[in-house]
Every structure is written in C-alpha cells, then in structure tokens.
Write a protein that binds this DNA or RNA. Structure first.
Lengths: 96, 96
DNA sequence: ACCTCACATTGATAAATGTCTATATGTATT
DNA sequence: AATACATATAGACATTTATCAATGTGAGGT
C-alpha cells in the first residue's frame, strides 16, 4: 500500500487511544517526567513506556533524557503536521 | 476512564488506518458513491462497509442515502472538531 | 410477485494492540 | 564495585481490529 497513507496513519495513532489522550492532556501543562506521568495514570510503568514510544514515533511528543529521567513534551512541529493534513481535508469538504 | 478521552479517541480512529486514509483521500475530490470507492480500493465490499461505519461514527464522514446508493463525503464540522482539539494542544506546546 | 443490484450485517479467523510480570539497561550514590 | 533508582525491553496473554465469505435488507426494474 501507499507509503504516504502509512505515514499519515502513524501520526494519528497518537490520538486513537484513551490513555494516550490522557497523557497528552497531562503534557498540556508543559514538559513532564515519565515518573510524574506514571503517578497520574492508572497503568504500570512498562505500559506507560509503550505508549510513550508510540507518541514519540508519531512525532507528536518529544523525549529528552536527563540523567536517569525522561522528560516528555508536546512537539509543536508534530502537531503542525497533523493540523496541515486536516486543513487540506477541510478545504475540499467546503466545496460541496 | 474519562468519557472525554474516549470521545476524542473515537474521532481520531478515522485517521489511524491506512485504508481509511486512502478513502479520505478519495473523498477529497468530493462526494462519492460507495461503489465508486470500492472500485478504487483493493478490499472487499464488506470491508469497505466496515471502514465507512467507523468513518461515520467518528463524525469525519457523512453518508447520504439515495435510492440504492450511499454517497459519502467529508464533514467540515467533523474536521473542525479534530482541528479544534489539535489547536488546543499546540498552544500549550509553544509555551516552552 | 419476482429478480437484480447496492449496501449492511453476521460469523469466523488472523493480525495488531494494550496490558501485565519479569528482566535488562543505564545512571547516579555510597 | 555494589546498590538503588528510572526507564526500556522481552515475553505472555487477552482484547480489539481488519479482513473475508456468506447471508440479510431494501430499493428499483421487469
């Protein structure tokens, strides 16, 4: 299948799981340590790690390592890519 | 878990599958009949029907019945909901 | 009334995903 | 170097999802 389609789907995987939405919500207030996120979520540490990988792979979240800690934050560039895709869809929708 | 998170995830389910991205791409050129979509995709009719249901449930696509035919088109309102969510995420991301 | 066509639904199956426990890795601290 | 801590990875398992073949539904057409 098309590579573009695969790439686009990958971006939006960030948003199609409840727990990841909750994580993104927590990151709204700024960069947060994984341990802090873990406190607020009702999941185990490996599960959090799994979701953080998906969020980073999608480009929506950025990870920054500092000593033993991982700090995660929302990537404006990542959000922009998603926004850009949606804008293009919308422009067409208005033609009808 | 939170209802809001579930609802948001539902919206973005529209975009996290390759075939659905391809369908949305086909709908960019305007409203299309299911049979027309089926021609362009490499999937069976029930599979298409399944994806169209997910797209409609997410609010991103609207279906219009006309005789035996179903016509699908992209919903500007649906896209707006998704855009709105992303905008809110982005505003925060810029603070850092 | 019957048939055909377009689409939806059902049921089965394989693949992908989310979750956990257990373990590994890497970074400080003593 | 030994230990403790934060996170990642591996492996196992259950749930969800994507897919197809078969069947149901409903709207025209003959």
């Amino acid at each position: 299948m098309g590579l573009d389609e695969k790439r686009t789907a990958l971006i939006f995987k960030a948003f199609c799981d409840e727990n990841r939405i909750k994580i993104l919500h927590l990151l709204k207030s700024g960069e947060k340590c994984a341990c802090k996120l873990l406190e607020e979520m009702n999941i185990t540490q490996p599960t959090l790690s799994h979701h953080m990988k998906i969020l980073c792979d999608s480009g929506i979240v950025i990870g920054r390592k500092e000593g033993k800690w991982m700090h995660y934050s929302i990537s404006s560039d990542g959000i922009d890519k998603a926004l850009c895709y949606l804008e293009k869809l919308k422009n067409i929708g208005e033609e009808r």
